[in-house]
Design a binder for these strands. Sequence first.
DNA 1: ACAGTGACTACAT
DNA 2: AATGTAGCCACTG
Length: 107
Amino acid sequence: MSDFYSQVYEIVRVIPFGRVTTYGAIAKALGSARSSRLVGIAMNHSHDIIPSIPAHRVVNRNGLLTGKHHFTKDISMQQRLESEGIIVKDDQIQNFSSLLWDPIIEL
DNA sequence: ACAGTGACTACAT
DNA sequence: AATGTAGCCACTG
């Protein structure tokens, strides 16, 4: 796996339980603020990674679950978030701004 | 090596 | 306010 992917996973893995972050924030934390798409692609490949990546804690900048269709059908992305105490309505994380965990600030 | 692509964003109509 | 368009950059075939 490329270094970029590894770095993405490294950050995603340290997202605290019950918190979320955005693709852009991760990209920026990696020094490539404009590589937000690559972060998403990395998530898409995350199901190949051995330590399961909490990809459901990564959403777009509006707190919208844009990547929910890439999850296994039996357990939805929304369901995983709700099991962590995060409220999701119409693919939109409620109280998103206060749940947001910015790796730039926290690291 | 080149062109196509994508779980994003920001800017422009 | 709501769509449309266009950069973005690393990965893949």
